[in-house]
Design a protein around this nucleic acid. Structure first.
Lengths: 341, 341
DNA sequence: CCTTTTTTCCAAAACGTTTTGGGGAGCGCG
DNA sequence: CGCGCTCCCCAAAACGTTTTGGAAAAAAGG
């Protein structure tokens, strides 16, 4: 049985298509009684407007897009679960749908998806996350005047709305916390250098050191890839130094989790023999062994607010606060000695 | 600047719309030379077909839908990260897009989303996961003859294609493993009773016990909710029994992770004083402390295969293996004493 | 009772494709 | 030369909405 169209409803009611459409859309040039008839008939007949037709006519899709920076089997960063949940919930509550795709950062596939989405007007706005310092996505979207919002900024001189966590200040705080616990040799496991978050967090780390009067030592820094495996490898490297660090900061919680594992393998008890801290503060960090000291960013809220900003931008509203910067909050747990430590 | 349409391309080339369309779609009734001209012009002009128009005309969207069983901030089950990555990658490689929404199981919102998606032909197929014993979603989709595939079966007498892991056999195996390690008091932390996976895994647990000649003891069973917090609470309850279990099986890894935490809080060393095992086997399980014994299901592969089945079904192909049952593989790690234990 | 205004409805045009059902031109063949 | 074939191409219809620009009917005003 073919889906019921607006024409069917009109025919049944002996009304014009126009009237049915306008009745359903709540225009005031249709008699109250008629509207009621229409609404009732539409419901009992199970009429739902065709998305494609509506979309074609109105030139908008009521869909926002998000591309997961992942390709391949092993992808379990809780950050993104929570981020997607936030996007999804917010989208639904604004009567938008969420289109999700996956692509490895800077891959050909990624470019292709953006081109397709933008050109074919499949989505009418995009949320982009994990920004790169010179982010072609931002450049591309700005150039095409395509509505988008970002989680984080870039180095480019482009104007676009974003929400950002001041992770630089956060990492300063983290270093300060470790220094207060008596640490002087504090290692850092970063992310790929082209990521904004790496630039910020690394700068925060360095600032923190110099604020405490500790000389920066490049040998205490290693590059991870924001995964557990990357953190593990990098941590091993640092722990095997002649004079290993007594504290380790990971660019995110996953990195820190990998580092904890490496520490254990080297016979160290995390929280006593070595301090380890991360960044993100999703639920998982609370459940590591020992619980992880971390900087918490409100991932779900951010996702929600991003959607709200995007929806407003699609509607053409001027954005009140186009660039928002939030402060992360330091959560001290046992992996650095515990709250009272 | 308005997007370039097929009409623009046709006008520029002084060809008909028809010819341009057919040239691009690779019909063989257009001269090779003409096709070349068209293809080139389309590319240089940056022409991409309008999704809405194509969709309206062809009566299909090339979109598949998936609804995440979550609503609210705390949602970080790695199972779903990996599942979504699999869906996304597979969809992309079949030239489909993936529409994602979130809704709490059996909520009004969930019903509404299904109705909308199905009626408005927004998606032309749906992947449904975490099946319920009497799943209204399966019923609804079958009734509306809407293409879908499932991860797991139901109790209903409905025919639909699915992939399933024989978790019943898996749990038998798990019990057997624990018995071999000398355990007699084996606890079980389950999931809500309306879930198929709970029925299966619980049955497997019971079978395992009876195969080993151990009497089933209901006091050793508690209900979790597949989250870490749920596992934690349930485990506390079991550990505080007069004669607590010496081994604990969680319905999934998250449950087991929560149980591990509870055990530690009671001063037990996991893997020595108590054995704990889970189910899912995503990467996370390898990185708990101690690493978790688990039954591994190939989540990413399953997601990919589901998409393939769905795409085939949308295309109208008869499905070769409509119901697939895979065996989970037991991965023994230190949480139950280690491989050589 | 005629005019003006308001209320309620509608026909037709778009939106950008794909597909149907030809049709003209060139060629080979008798 | 005329016929049929093949090769390319195209006009027009259709997909299901929303929106524009009235028009008929009813109400109000004189």
């Amino acid at each position: 049985m073919p889906p019921v169209t607006i024409r069917d409803v009109a025919k049944r009611l002996k009304l014009s298509i126009t009237t049915v459409s306008r009745a359903l859309d709540g225009y005031d040039d249709v008699a109250a009684k008629t509207r009621q008839r229409v609404v009732r008939a539409a419901r009992t007949m199970g009429y739902v407007p065709s998305r494609a037709a509506r979309q074609l006519r109105r030139q908008r899709a009521d869909v926002i897009g998000y591309i997961l920076p992942a390709s391949g089997p092993h992808f379990t960063d809780p950050f993104f679960s929570e981020f997607i949940a936030g996007l999804g919930d917010a989208a639904t509550s604004h009567n938008f749908d969420l289109l999700v795709s996956t692509a490895a950062p800077d891959s050909a596939a990624e470019k292709q998806i953006y081109a397709r989405w933008v050109q074919s007007r499949l989505v009418d706005g995009i949320v982009v996350s994990r920004m790169r310092l010179r982010d072609w996505r931002a450049r591309y979207l700005v150039k095409n005047k395509f509505p988008f919002v970002a989680h984080g900024h870039t180095l480019l001189t482009l104007k676009f709305p974003y929400i950002e966590i001041d992770s630089r200040a956060g990492f300063e705080l983290l270093v300060q916390h470790l220094v207060a616990r008596g640490h002087r040799r504090i290692g850092y496991i970063g992310a790929p250098a082209n990521l904004t978050l790496q630039a910020d967090r690394f700068a925060g780390y360095q600032n923190g050191l110099s604020a405490a009067g500790i000389a920066f030592d490049a040998t205490l820094c290693a590059e991870g890839d924001l995964t557990r495996a990357g953190g593990y490898q990098a941590a091993l490297q640092l722990l095997d130094l002649p004079t290993p660090p007594t504290a380790l900061i990971g660019a995110n919680d996953l990195t820190a989790a990998g580092a904890m594992r490496a520490a254990r393998e080297r016979g160290l008890t995390v929280g006593r023999d070595i301090a380890i801290a991360g960044y993100d503060g999703t639920d998982d960090s609370e459940h590591t062994q020992p619980p992880l000291t971390t900087l918490k960013q409100p991932v779900y809220d951010i996702a929600q607010r991003l959607v709200e900003m995007l929806v407003a931008r699609i509607a053409g509203d001027a954005l009140a606060a186009a660039q928002t910067v939030l402060q992360p909050v330091l959560i001290v747990r046992e992996s650095t000695g515990g709250p009272s430590g």
